[in-house]
């Protein structure tokens, strides 16, 4: 009995210690820093103030927030549209090639995404591969501007984050019971109805998981807008990076991180709440 208890406390303690070291303490420090003052000689200093949060409500910052949400949202949507059919085909595949295809999805992870983003420049730039090809084929007469704008940032984000959409979706679709699809066909549903009424609702958890996994990093991956977006494209990730490393305004950077975290948490809570409400309605 006594040993059992000891083990119970030990495993609980491990979880808590892990959470404290890797989650609560860092977050506590960031919150703490976000409430401090700043001057040119000190990274952070007393007194405590809410000034940083007030500063974030200035239009320039709000604009960056909105733009970041917009870019991350578009990238997530594109990942979903591109990833779903691929994940579906992959999940339903029975041949031995399946393992190979999954490997092909994962292989890019083995190269630094920084390097892959540099290679995107080579592909997208004015004298890059795509433009050269289109010019030489006579399809276009002057290069399409594809780099150092929002398009290139979105392309870069989609390219880097697509696997995070595909993998959870694939797992979800694989678990989908084939007999449900048979049953829908048996009851007279055509392919479109089966997809809309059965497959889509049942793969919703995979889509949500994929969207969260893509949207969160899309908000904060600072080096992709840095490399592919040029100077014009400042997103939240760059903003936070600049505040910490260039202007060395730690309190403002911390406040930005906290606001971002709160916004994302609220979005997830709204989603969970909507699901719970739906469940309660169903019970009535």
């Amino acid at each position: 009995m006594k040993n059992d208890n000891a083990f119970k406390y030990f495993s609980l303690a491990t979880t808590w210690i892990w959470l404290i070291i890797f989650s609560f303490v860092p977050y506590g420090l960031v919150i703490f820093a976000s409430l401090m003052s700043h001057d040119t000689n000190h990274l952070i200093r007393l007194p405590f103030t809410l000034q940083n949060y007030v500063e974030l409500s200035e239009p320039i910052y709000i604009k960056i927030f909105i733009k970041s949400f917009y870019i991350a949202g578009i990238s997530t949507l594109i990942c979903l549209i591109l990833g779903y059919p691929f994940a579906y085909t992959l999940a339903r595949m029975k041949s031995r090639l399946k393992g190979l295809f999954i490997l092909l999805v994962i292989i890019p992870f083995w190269t630094s995404s920084l390097i892959r983003s540099y290679s995107m420049i080579a592909i997208l730039k004015a004298k890059g591969i795509i433009n050269s090809l289109l010019l030489s084929l006579g399809i276009i007469h002057e290069p399409i501007p594809m780099i150092f704008n929002n398009t290139s940032v979105i392309i870069g984000l989609v390219y880097n984050l697509l696997p995070f959409m595909i993998l959870p979706l694939m797992t979800n679709i694989e678990r989908l019971d084939n007999r449900l699809i048979d049953a829908a066909r048996d009851l007279g549903a055509n392919r479109i109805t089966t997809f809309r009424k059965i497959i889509l609702p049942l793969t919703m958890p995979g889509m949500i998981a994929g969207c969260i996994l893509v949207f969160l990093p899309a908000m904060t991956l600072f080096y992709i807008p840095d490399l592919l977006g040029g100077a014009k494209s400042i997103l939240l990730g760059n903003l936070i990076q600049n505040q910490f490393l260039i202007t060395q305004h730690w309190p403002l950077g911390s406040a930005t991180s906290i606001v971002l975290a709160i916004l994302l948490a609220v979005m997830i809570l709204i989603y969970l709440q909507s699901k719970r409400n739906k469940k309660e309605q169903d019970l009535l």
Binding site: D177, R179, L180, D182, A183, A184, D186, I198
Partner: peptide
């Protein structure tokens, strides 16, 4: 119409 093994209810 078929009643499936393990029912396949949606």
């Amino acid at each position: 119409h078929t009643v499936f093994q393990s029912y396949a209810l949606f």
